[in-house]
Design a binder for these strands. Structure first.
Lengths: 153, 153
DNA sequence: GTAATTGCAAATTCTTTGCACGGTC
DNA sequence: GACCGTGCAAAGAATTTGCAATTAC
């Protein structure tokens, strides 16, 4: 995905929602785009943004992330470690992707595949619940850590 | 599920892990058992426990919930509202149950059905990830709120 | 021009920790 | 009597908010 076109798209979204495009918001967006694969916390985003715009304040980052969450540009996720993390929604992705959280090394891998189609149908029909989105995280041991454990044995 | 037998079982688990079953811990457990269907935060557990044992401290509740989480008696879950919630693991349940979070009224419904069997197989084989547990929450509109919306239209 | 946005610091909220005291085997 | 567990208050971490100054449109 072209960073610039993604940026333009969000700009449009911001304007349509009545927000201004400030340099601070642009810098924050750039950081998110450059770290697409990570799951940065607000503090981490702040750390990276500060290298581009040293005068930015943490509160501004929090406020920007809140707006982007409301616009569904990012998804706020939490992996039970007490920090909110922000995950860029993939361009054109119908569904929010899933996560594999390694209990050993703490690494988080992403799964783009949908996988939940049938499950959502069951939820819709059997529980009469109109599904809009989902959060799915598997807890377990990643490939690397499995290999390490085998060596130890 | 018999409250008393559930209590006995946890007592055994505590002892096996080298912990005592103190009156405070027992009161906390009782609150969890009595509110099995809810997803209480630590503060809420504290509130209910205080009615049984007015002298209990909030820190004790936090410490108890941490022990119970480590023993997998409860699961710590987070629905992105900034508070950790504690969900009693069902007796004999192979898998952690799923949640339906209504975006309208905020209510959380539970699904006991597994539903993820095939999905886990895909994750295991295609991503070489050894699944130990999962967290699945659907965001959407619950049956009650759907009915309300229809009336408005 | 003016309403939105910002940075800073203070305030809040949730959770953890230090420590002296109390209960238990 | 060693040790675990407790309550309280203080500390810590994450996030939000109030406000005067600044900026985008």
């Amino acid at each position: 995905m072209n960073t610039n076109s993604a940026l333009m798209k969000v700009k449009k979204q911001l304007h349509e929602a009545g927000f201004k495009l400030t340099p601070q918001r642009e810098a924050t967006l750039l950081v998110l785009l450059e770290n697409e694969k990570d799951h940065l916390s607000a503090e981490e985003v702040f750390f990276f943004v500060k290298r581009k715009s040293p005068d930015i304040g943490l509160a501004t980052v929090y406020r920007t992330l809140e707006i982007l969450t409301d616009l569904h540009v990012v998804d706020k996720v939490s992996f039970n470690d007490g920090v909110a993390r922000y995950d860029l929604r993939k361009e054109g992705a119908k569904h929010f992707h899933h996560h594999l959280l390694c209990l050993e090394c703490g690494n988080i891998e992403e799964i783009e595949e949908d996988l939940l189609g049938e499950v959502e149908e069951v939820v819709e029909s059997r529980y009469h619940f109109a599904v809009k989105d989902h959060r799915l995280t598997f807890h377990g041991i990643c490939r690397q850590c499995q290999n390490k454990q085998e060596k130890v044995l």
